[in-house]
Design a protein around this nucleic acid. Structure first.
Lengths: 201, 201
DNA sequence: GTCTATACCTTGATAGAC
DNA sequence: GTCTATCAAGGTATAGAC
């Protein structure tokens, strides 16, 4: 349920959400440090000074944005888990989700990767919060790989995420959608190549 | 030899180089947009206003930084080519160079990747210049792979660079040097796995 | 050629009227 | 609860004294 914001939940709750939503988009499209309060205010349709009723600082907004992203990721992973019992097919959904973001990836890169890279350079406190988005995926990937009987599932999960991140970087740098598609096809092939031997069951 | 700066080459040339060197470090360590003129002036040991004698704008400094990096990359690749005729061993030097940057990669990520990602979001003109650093490596990688008889050398070069970029991202996000070393070992293994069949010779 | 002083704008943040 | 007016600080860039 996340930490409670200082405005009492009730009236301003929808305004707060709109601010977070606008900030979320802008942080992704321009980067955190390159997004100003003015930008967010315009996008959210509220006056500039009105911010500090909902958030006490810019970092605070980023925190809310990260929390919102985390909630969304959590919900998505839970949905995959609920809808699909086969870990291999779950992994394929992961690849499919990336395909669905093709357009954004070409323009803005990976929202998790680019944010972590930006914050990792000189804002370690914020970067630590942003890392949690990765943790969710890594843990989930490791669970699926473990369910497929992979021994070093955690390391393999890191490796798989690294592969995806590499594709995201090259995709943004070269704007090459064909490359991206080919790489994701190889990723699918890798998933299929994993031996099917669940441990318990 | 790059474009001539407006100060006549001669006296201020070493000052100019010092500015570029300081900016180069700072752009890498903090990011381009997060680096101010004040930062650069302090690092270079010159007064703030003195900049505009050497550069007409901040973008102009970035241009000079990119040019300097390109020159350095070019020299490095030429050195590898001169010192080592075997394309396979050249590729190993590439991997070795990355190992040598371990400490910086953990803290700041890849200097080319992070800069391209930052500029790619909303500064397309600058990003286009930064991309040229990648072009050098991609072309060089493609040449080595072609020399090894690889059919789709260009695509394979992109893939190899993507792999490295993915490792760089995950390395910075998780600060895991063991992961990085293991991934580079796999990269070495991949190089060795390439069949040895030069076309001409 | 080198440096000081400063203009002008935008930033994140606050105070207080409504 | 909502918004206007404004702040101090820091940003890039310029003018002009030495």
């Amino acid at each position: 349920m996340a930490k409670k914001p200082h405005p009492a939940p009730g009236q301003g709750e929808t305004v707060r959400r709109e601010i977070v939503e606008a900030a979320n988009r802008l942080f992704y499209h321009r980067g955190y440090n390159q997004t100003s309060f003015t930008d967010i205010a315009e996008a959210a349709g509220i006056p500039r000074g009105n911010f500090y009723y909902y958030f006490r600082s810019k970092d605070d907004i980023l925190g809310a944005v990260i929390d919102a992203r985390i909630e969304r990721i959590r919900a998505m992973l839970a949905e995959w888990d609920a809808a699909e019992p086969d870990p291999r097919l779950r992994l394929k959904r992961f690849a499919q989700m990336i395909r669905g973001s093709e357009k954004d990836l070409l323009r803005y890169g990976c929202p998790m990767g680019s944010l972590n890279i930006e914050l990792g350079k000189a804002q370690p406190a914020l970067k630590a919060r942003a890392k949690k988005m990765f943790d969710l995926f890594i843990d989930w990937l490791a669970r699926q790989l473990a369910a497929l009987g992979q021994a070093d599932a955690s390391r393999l999960a890191l490796q798989a995420m690294g592969r995806v991140q590499g594709v995201a970087v090259m995709t943004q740098v070269y704007g090459d959608r064909e490359f991206m598609r080919a790489q994701l096809a190889e990723f699918d092939a890798w998933i299929e190549s994993l031996p099917a031997q669940g441990p318990a069951k």
